[in-house]
Amino acid sequence: MASSSLRERAVRVAVKLAPHTAEPAREAIREAATRLPADPRERLAAGFGPVAELRARPAAIRPTAFP
């Protein structure tokens, strides 16, 4: 997991470069932003468009023993 200062710097750089970003990369950034806390997610949304709220992680799949 990235430190908060590294995450903050990455968000600043991403927002600064947003006007020069192609649509496929914008989509990837919006998808990745769903896993961020509210403040950086909102700043990315300002530069890259609407970002969905944080989604719950799917439940882990547990292996079962074979009979």
Rank of each mutant, 00 (worst) to 15 (best):
F66W: 11
P19E: 07
V11H: 03
R26E: 02
V11D: 04
E31H: 11
R57E: 06
E8G: 14
A56L: 12
R41A: 13
K16S: 13
R9F: 07
P58C: 00
P58E: 07
R35F: 09
E23S: 12
L54F: 10
P67D: 09
A65D: 04
L6V: 15
A52F: 03
A59T: 09
M1F: 11
R9S: 09
S3R: 13
G47H: 02
S5N: 13
A10Q: 10
R26Y: 01
P67N: 08
G49A: 10
A22N: 07
F48D: 00
H20N: 11
S4Q: 13
L54Q: 14
G49Q: 07
I29L: 04
E53C: 00
E31T: 15
R62M: 13
R12H: 09
T21P: 00
L44K: 03
R30P: 02
T21S: 06
P63E: 15
F66A: 15
V15K: 03
E23Y: 07
D39G: 09
R41W: 05
R9Q: 11
D39M: 08
A45I: 05
A59M: 07
A10G: 12
P67S: 11
M1H: 10
E23M: 10
R55V: 09
R55F: 02
F48V: 01
A2P: 06
R12S: 12
M1I: 09
A22G: 08
A2I: 12
V11R: 06
A52D: 13
L44N: 02
A46P: 01
P24Q: 03
V51K: 00
T64P: 00
E23I: 03
E23Q: 15
E23G: 04
A2W: 14
E31M: 12
A18N: 05
L6Q: 14
A60H: 06
A10D: 05
R62A: 15
R41F: 10
G49K: 07
A38S: 11
E23N: 10
A18M: 03
P40I: 07
A45W: 06
E42V: 06
E27S: 05
S4R: 15
A14T: 03
V11N: 04
F48N: 01
R62S: 14
P63I: 08
P63C: 05
E31P: 01
R26Q: 08
F66R: 14
V13Y: 07
T34H: 01
A10C: 09
A38P: 04
L36K: 07
A33W: 06
I29S: 00
R55Y: 01
A10L: 13
A45N: 04
G47D: 04
R62G: 08
R41Q: 05
P67W: 04
G47I: 00
L44V: 05
R30A: 05
E31W: 06
A14Q: 01
D39K: 14
P67T: 10
E42G: 11
P19G: 06
M1W: 09
V13C: 02
A56R: 15
G47M: 02
S5Y: 12
A14K: 00
R62N: 11
A32T: 04
L36S: 06
